[in-house]
């Protein structure tokens, strides 16, 4: 076993197999944006604070700026592109659009993915505190969070 400067990443993004040769220092975020074409992944800080780059790794929300593409091998990655293929994803989109839970939209995919994961937790109840904890890990500069929390509560209350 020898260290490498480039590596072939074989992984699954939004249910589809992906294989690509990457420089090992490529972050997962850059890989998803540049190689796979998932432009819903946004870079707001590249140091883990803002949450705009959130993706689901085996179903769990993580910051894709704090991960290497090389580490994706053997894992399932879901971005907003994937979540929008699901019923729950569509409902989240619908409610966000109705509630105006976005303005510039740059933070939105991150919020939506964290919320998706939280709502997937059914049948465990989702408390207001859960919502605050989950959304509290994301920065939005436009909305003042008011409409995002309203959307989250609506989604929670109508959770199937």
């Amino acid at each position: 076993m020898r260290p490498q400067r480039r590596t072939i990443v074989t992984t699954e993004v939004n249910g589809a197999p992906v294989e690509a040769l990457v420089d090992v220092r490529t972050t997962l975020a850059d890989f998803l944006r540049e190689e796979v074409g998932c432009t819903s992944v946004h870079l707001g800080c590249e140091h883990g604070v803002c949450g705009a780059c959130t993706v689901l790794l085996n179903g769990l929300p993580v910051r894709s700026c704090l991960r290497l593409a090389a580490q994706a091998a053997g894992h399932e990655i879901t971005t907003l592109e994937g979540v929008m293929q699901t019923e729950r994803g569509k409902t989240i989109g619908q409610v966000f659009v109705e509630q105006f839970a976005m303005q510039c939209g740059f933070c939105t995919a991150g919020f939506a993915l964290s919320l998706y994961h939280l709502l997937e937790r059914a049948p465990e109840p989702v408390t207001d505190q859960d919502i605050h904890e989950t959304l509290g890990g994301h920065i939005c500069r436009c909305t003042g969070y008011v409409s995002i929390v309203e959307a989250a509560k609506r989604l929670r209350d109508h959770r199937g």
């Binding site: 076993m1 020898r2 260290p3 490498q4 400067r5 590596t7 420089d23 090992v24 220092r25 972050t27 850059d30 590249e46 140091h47 290497l68 090389a70 580490q71 091998a73």
Partner: peptide
């Protein structure tokens, strides 16, 4: 804001990790 070049190794056991 991108990492400087490095090489990457992903050991599969403690022994391999220690060897690296």
């Amino acid at each position: 804001m991108k990492p400087a070049p490095f090489e990457y190794i992903a050991p599969e056991s403690i022994e391999q990790a220690l060897a690296a």
